[in-house]
Structure formats: structure tokens, C-alpha cells
Write a protein that binds this DNA or RNA. Sequence first.
DNA 1: CTGTTAGCGCTTTCAT
DNA 2: ATGAAAGCGCTAACAG
Lengths: 366, 366
Amino acid sequence: MRQSKGAQGVDGASAKAPTIRDVARVAGVSVASVSRVLNGLGPVTEHTRRKVFDAAAELRYVPHSGARSLSTSRTDTVGVILPDLFGEFFSELIRGLDVAARERGLHLLVSSSHDHADDAAAAVRNLRGRVDGLIVMSPHLASANLAASLVGNLPTLTLNGALDDETQPSIVVDNHGGAAEATRHLIAGGRRSIAHIAGPAGNLEAEARLAGYLEAMADAGLPSRVIDGDFDQASGHRAGRVLASEAERPDAVFAGNDMMAVGALLAFREAGLRCPQDVALCGFDDVPIAALVSPGLTTMRISIADVGRRALGRLADRIGGAATGQQPMREIVRPQLVARESSLSAGDIGATASRAADPVSQGGAR
Amino acid sequence: MRQSKGAQGVDGASAKAPTIRDVARVAGVSVASVSRVLNGLGPVTEHTRRKVFDAAAELRYVPHSGARSLSTSRTDTVGVILPDLFGEFFSELIRGLDVAARERGLHLLVSSSHDHADDAAAAVRNLRGRVDGLIVMSPHLASANLAASLVGNLPTLTLNGALDDETQPSIVVDNHGGAAEATRHLIAGGRRSIAHIAGPAGNLEAEARLAGYLEAMADAGLPSRVIDGDFDQASGHRAGRVLASEAERPDAVFAGNDMMAVGALLAFREAGLRCPQDVALCGFDDVPIAALVSPGLTTMRISIADVGRRALGRLADRIGGAATGQQPMREIVRPQLVARESSLSAGDIGATASRAADPVSQGGAR
DNA sequence: CTGTTAGCGCTTTCAT
DNA sequence: ATGAAAGCGCTAACAG
């Protein structure tokens, strides 16, 4: 291994990293040629090609993508602004984004746990010059809108934003329709007194689900009953305990998400109620736990990784300058009913031998 | 709202974003002054301060952090290279990193799902010039080492890397010790025939846990029994089914992680075995599901968010040029035994009235 | 085919 | 206190 004639030897593990100029000097060519060779662009002689590669290898040269970005005004990175997301929901979303990003050679700059609009806005500002586009998920009032405008004209895709904003490209989950379907499912099972455990006030998704429930109940001419929760398991447990002890105990409960449903399920069990015989139960999201509890939890499935994948795909198209007009501004993801034992109607309760198969359907390595 | 005299009006939502020169021009000062004002550095007259702020506001100027980085050679971003991680483990880790990063005003550039060393190495190269430091988690053979060297001298912190590398700053979970403790816990409960469901071959964590189990069994003079799994629930289910049907059925099972333990638990239930009466069970990780299954799953808890927090903290210190010598190169995280019902010994089985309290202990909003 | 040079947007001496 | 100018490392015309 020969030494470079420059100041830095191959093994100088400290000191500054070599730049393209160092490579050019060692190779005895111009920086332009180095750039061409390394990017496989312009026409180059095999001879210089060799020299450049050799020099680069000798110096352990690694291109400085920051500088490259400044020059090309492309960062090949998309920023992701997320609220305070927990558990599987978060990881599945990132996974979907990551997979789609990798396919396109893009990177992900993630900034999560933004629960306040101004907080998120600040994060967005910091991203200027680091990203080519933005994916913003903001469950609270239209901060996404605000954030996007702050950064000037940066391609932005909103996830589950406010429903009233048709101008911004977005992907939204049809929480309203899903909740209505869940409610109708319980009604179809013969339930008449159906309570809803709602998610936190101010959360757009929680409100949409509540509205869907109310609509379905009203349509069926049934009285509604809402009890507050905040999307976490403990709140579902509290709500379940309250409902179980009421004089007019409901014969079914539709929870705003699975975690609350699981909490309620445990509360029912503690109260000596059988599910689904005494009270049917339905959640929302289809998190992995839903399939594991006993009885299996009926829920509305959202393929969240898929949402992430599609979100990144659309954003990438926009960044790449692909068709803007032909695609609809707003894309809607419809949750899918996954009926498990927790919502079986009285008539069906014999046919439950299939339990064995379900619990192992969900993968999930460490 | 007055119009700027430049080509771009305030509302020109299209066209190019304003640069620092635009601000300088509009404010009638030099770019140097704008930079000083905006960064609150040099001494400036209140008069120019005003003018600069006004101009910036009028143009909706947002600094270009990419350019800034090139100038200052600081990106305020740390890169995170992760393997194919699923579920809670992934999200908790990111959460810990994110919280710690935000405290220090740092960003997170996440690149996940790297299961091959060369794959990860490529990702690392792409990060040069985008990050000030690196957190690399590589469950497979010492690719972390390799990756780190590839990028030259970039502060790097390894998570759960190979055990033989004492030269690189790292945080490692004591999987070996934790597994031994779990095994000893089962032995202490009076179990004698204890099987281990192992994680995937080649995975450093899986191998360390296996080794810990083998050591504890050997120390106790008990024969060991290992059955293969791959860290996901289905493999645990298969292993559990095999074990349940064996002539010499074990009276306890230590699974390499919680997901496999849950799979085994379901298999036992299907086979008509009672847990913990007929067979005790212990997992590893303490994922949220562990507390939710029935019986509650005994496991070794790793506070993974905490690991993330500490990892980022140490890296940030190194980047900031903080003490390098005084801190130990390798930091060890010891898993903690969380005893639930699945490992109760025969004598203790009466005292299980406490079940009600546990299931709601885990938080987790959507 | 290859080298020179002018930026990308910002920070930072160094004069003034 | 302010401005002019030299880079940060790379790419992309434009000449040769």
C-alpha cells in the first residue's frame, strides 16, 4: 500500500476527511473529471477512470452529500413530522415509509412527538434545505396547513389532516365511515344498546370516529351513549368499569381504538361479564394485540404500513415532477372490518372452534 | 401588507425561496449583517436589527440549513442505522432517541431495515456530510465495526454490537446475564426440565441469550434442551406445539423473546396444558403484550427507550467534544426480571388475586 | 475527452 | 458597527 504524496497518509485515521480535490490531485486530473467518473456521467477515458478510482480508494474518499445537495439542490431526503405516536402504529408507519423510500433511493429525516402546532412548525422550518419534501401528520387542528405554508413551496403531503382542506395533497383514513361500519356491524349482530368509548377531545381522528358512531346509531333509530377516554388502555379500563356497573348496562361497546377496547375487555372480565355473550366489543386499528387477546377482538383494520408506503410514493412522484393533475388531491383509505369473537352474536357462539388459527397470523420478529 | 420592491411579491407562493441575499437587499444591509442578526451573534445596531427582521418577515425567509451546514461543518443531525426491527422495540428505541435528540436541538436521520452488513455500510456512506455522528445497531456480525470505519472518523456509537470489540464506544444489553437470570428464576421455582426456544442463528442477541441459558442450566447440573425459533410469534407457536407433544414434556420454557413466548403460550393452551401449573414460561424484552396476555408473562425487562436516550446522550457528548476518556467505552444495560403469573411455582399459585391490577399498568395512546 | 470556473446559500475573518 | 470577500465541497456549464 503506497503512501499518498499529500500530507495525509492512507492510515491517518484522524485529521480531515479527503475532499474531491484531494482525489483530483492524487489522481492527477481535475475535479471535474473526478466528479464525472464518480457519478458515471460525462464521457471519460478508461485510463482516467482507473486513476480516479484508484485515488479514491487510496484516500478512502467518501463524497460529501451535503455539499452535493447544495450544488444540485436536491437532498434525496424527505422529512417526516409526526405527533406523539405510540407503539405499533408508529413503527408500522415508519416501516412503510422507509421501505418505499429505500426503493427510490431516498432518506428519511424523522421528527416525531410534535403535539403542538407551533412545535411542529418550528420543526418544519428547521428542515428547509435538508429535505426535498415533507410528510406531515398532525392529529390536531389544521397545523399541517400552517406548517406547510411556513416552509414556502416545498412539496408536502398531509396524513390524516383536517377534513376541510381539499387544497393540500393528502391521504386520510376514513375514520367516520369506518366507525359507522363498526357500529352497524354490532347492530347487525342484534345489539341495541351500544356505547362508545371516545378518544381525546381535539383529536381529529377521535372526533371522526365518534361522529361515525353517532350517525350510525341515529340512522338505526337507537339512542347513543358516549363515555370519554383518551386512546390509552387505562382510560378504556376505567370506561369499561363504569359501563359494567351501570343500571342499564349496554350490550355492546364500540371503542375508539383497540387499546381502549382491550382495557374495557379486562374491566368486563373483572366485573364477571362474559364477552361476547353479555357484551359485544369492537375496537379500531387492528393492532397486533387485538388478535392475541381472548376473545379475539373485532376491529377495523387500517394497514398503516401501506398508508406510509403510499404517502411516500405520492410525495416522491410530486418531487420527481410527476403528474400533479391527474391524481386526486385527497386519497382515502377505508378501514376494513375484521370480525373476531368479541362481537359474535348469540346465534353464532357455537361456531368458535377456529380460534386456534388466528392468534398466530400476525408476524413480528424482534 | 406592502410589496417588496424585488421581483417576488410576498404572496408569490411559487418561484424560488428567498435567500439571505434577498433579505439583505430588501433590508438595505449586507448579507453579513443579516447573518449576524439572525444568529444573534455579532454586535448590531438596534436599527439594522429591526430592518433585517422586517425584511425577513416580509419575505417569509427561512434559512437554508443545508448551506449553513456546509459553512459551519455541523449538521446538528445524527444518523441512525437500524436492522429490521419490528413493533414496540423499534418505536420505543426511536422514541428514546428522539426525545434525547430534541433536548439537544438535534435531528434524527433514520435508516432502518438493514439486515446485511454491506447494505448498512452503503447507508453509512450516504450519510457522510449529512450527519455529525452515527448510532449503529447491527445484530449481525461485526458489521458495525466495518461500517464505522468506512465513513472515516465520524463519532459513532454502537448498539448491541459484537462483544469482542472493546475499542468502539457502545451500549450493550447484557443478554447473556439476563438469560441466565431468567433461567435461574425458573429453577428457583422448582422447575427441573427447562427448554429454551432460541432466536435466529447468527443473531448476536439470540446467541447471547442461548449461551446464558446453557450456562445457567449447566451450573445447576440440569440437562438443557434447545429448540429453534426466529424471534417471531409463529415460530414460538410451532416450538410450543412440538414441546407440548413430547414424551418428556418440559415443566418450564424460557423463550428467547416475548413474541415467541406468547406463541408458545397459545400452543400450550391449545394443547390443553395449563400455565403455569403444567408448564412455566418466561420471555425476554417485556413488550407491552407481555402484561396483557393471560396469564401475565414473566419476562426480562429492557427499558429500550432508555437505551435510546442514553445512546444519543453519549454520542452527543462526543460530538460536542465532551469527555472522551473518563467514560467507559462500553456501557452495559442489565435486563430486569419482571415476575408475572406465567412462572409462578406450584406453592404460590393461590396468591394470584392481584391479576386485576397489572393489565392496566402499561400506557400507550395511539 | 478534459480542465477552468462560476456558483449553490451561508458563515466568518478581515478591513473599514 | 458594518461590508467585502473568501471559502465549505461539490456540480455543471463552457471552453479548449
